[in-house]
Amino acid sequence: MASVPSKLYSDDVSLVVVLLDTNPFLWTATATATTFTFPEFLAHVLSFLNSIILLNQLNQVVVIATGLNSCDYIFDSSAPSKVEPFESARMPLLYSRVLRRLEDFLGSDERSERSNGAAAAAAPSSLLSGSLSLALCYIQRVFRSGALHPQPRILCLQGSPDGPEQYVAVMNAIFSAQRSMVPIDSCVIGAQHSAFLQQASYITGGVYLKPPMLDGLFQYLSTIFATDLHSRSFLQLPKPVGVDFRASCFCHKKTIDMGYICSVCLSIFCKHHKKCSTCGSVFGQANPEAAAAATDRKRKAPEV
């Protein structure tokens, strides 16, 4: 008769924050090289978003666009819907809203490109660190909204190559996701793997996947990435082979097992240096003999 009073949302209520890679170069390059085009991509992703909302009345979807110069929220299923003109009978409202906001976003992203005057072609990586941070901010707000909130997770749909200059910011975002127990799922849609996302998923316990058949993207999304966190404890999902956390030295890019680490900035070197090339700290050891002896014993760089 009276339903059992549930104190919390049932475990499968999800908040999925989807990060869309909107790097124009990625999509124009793929347009010529492969058969998987941006409209197809959109079709797959929009169907996926719709599916998530469909699965549970309380499910929530947030879309963030990862542009070249900026990122922004594109869609939030929990936001009160404004009266909008019914644009097309051909597609659901969700779709037309996402598309319209996406168009707006591209415009503003392009404008900031111009104002920045940056040579984009040199580094055509999108601003993953920015959109990860936006996603985490949103999730933090949800966490603080009260005891009753859906279980959040992040899904990165990334195709651009990693931007090495974002390293620190991305890693920070990953660790903060780890701390707040938010899994980062990664679906790589570009030509190459992403070391960032591989680490992100590994560290946060998400799924990393680079679909071999992009025209079946929706199938990947629905089979793997639509799985709510509750069900994940009962299911076997593709596991990464394991991340090789061995580092290579900053000086020669050699993979090393033992080396010298700057005690200030954690840069790694295979040989003893007088000065850290990354942060400029001076390693204070005048006597090289003694220094060698000391490092032999301690096996790490001397204090600054």
């Binding site: 699965l55 929706f218 629905s222 089979t223 639509a226 509750h230 069900s231 009962f234 299911l235 076997q236």
Partner: peptide, 28 residues
């Protein structure tokens, strides 16, 4: 139930029979 939802979703576009065994492969 959550798991059933997932199954429906993942078989949405599948038009051929799927063996019960292959579904069980996913289950821990």
């Amino acid at each position: 139930p959550p798991l059933a939802k997932k199954y429906v979703l993942q078989l949405l576009f599948i038009d051929a029979p799927v063996t019960a065994k292959s579904m069980e492969e996913w289950v821990l």
